[in-house]
Design a binder for these strands. Structure first.
Length: 171
DNA sequence: TCCGTATTGAACT
DNA sequence: AGTTCAATACGGA
C-alpha cells in the first residue's frame, strides 16, 4: 500500500522547492528544476491542493521552510522537521552520517564509507547518495570525491557548486 | 543473476 | 599531468 503524501511548495529566492510529507515527517524534497517551474507556471499555481493539511504537517512545513532558507542563506538551521526516510539500512546509515557533517565542512565518499564500517563500499555509497530523498537538509552536497573534486549531484552540478559556495567553500 | 553507479587509486600514456 | 581501467559493495530489474 502506498502512503499518501502531502505535497507543499516552498518558495525561495532560488526557486520553488517541493516538500513531500507523510504522516511521519518529511519524506522527500524536490529541487526547483526547469520542469518543475514550467509545470507550476502552466498550472497557474504550484500544487494548490484542497486536501486538508493537518496542524502537525503545517508545523513541519514551517520548520522545513525555515531550515531550507537558512541553508540557502549560508547558516546552519537550528530546527529540523522529523525525517521520514525510507530505504535500506545501508542507505539510512549513509544518510545519517551525512547529516552529521556540519555546515562548511566536507567529507569524501571514502570517509563516509570508512565511518559506517565498509571502507570499500564507496561506489555503493554513491548509489545511496543518488537516492537521497532529501537533498540540502541531508547535506549530500557536502560529500566530495577524494581529491576534493565535485562528484555529481541529483539536482544538477550547478546546485552543488552553488550550495557549497554559499557555505564559503572554494575550489 | 546481471547491470549500473554521485569512487578510487594505480598503471599507462 | 591527464586518462584509462579494474575492483568493489549494494540496490534494482
Amino acid at each position: 500500500m502506498k502512503t499518501e503524501l502531502f505535497e507543499l511548495p516552498i518558495a525561495t529566492s532560488d526557486g520553488i522547492f517541493c516538500a513531500h510529507y507523510s504522516e511521519k515527517g518529511l519524506a522527500k524534497l524536490h529541487f526547483p528544476n526547469a520542469k518543475n517551474l514550467d509545470a507550476a507556471k502552466k498550472n497557474g499555481k504550484p500544487a494548490a491542493h484542497k486536501i486538508k493539511i493537518s496542524v502537525k504537517i503545517r508545523g513541519w512545513h514551517r520548520m522545513t521552510e525555515t531550515a531550507l532558507k537558512k541553508i540557502l542563506a549560508g547558516s546552519e538551521p537550528k530546527k529540523f522537521p522529523p525525517l521520514d526516510l525510507s530505504g535500506t539500512d545501508f542507505q539510512k546509515s549513509v544518510w545519517r552520517e551525512m547529516q552529521k557533517i556540519s555546515l562548511g565542512k566536507t567529507k569524501s565518499y571514502g570517509e563516509i564509507a570508512l565511518i559506517i564500517g565498509k571502507p570499500k563500499a564507496v561506489r555503493a555509497l554513491g548509489n545511496a547518495c543518488g537516492k537521497n530523498p532529501i537533498p540540502v537538509l541531508v547535506p549530500c552536497h557536502r560529500v566530495l570525491a577524494a581529491n576534493k573534486k565535485l562528484g555529481g549531484f541529483s539536482g544538477g552540478l550547478d546546485w552543488k557548486r552553488k550550495l557549497l559556495a554559499n557555505e564559503g567553500l572554494k575550489f
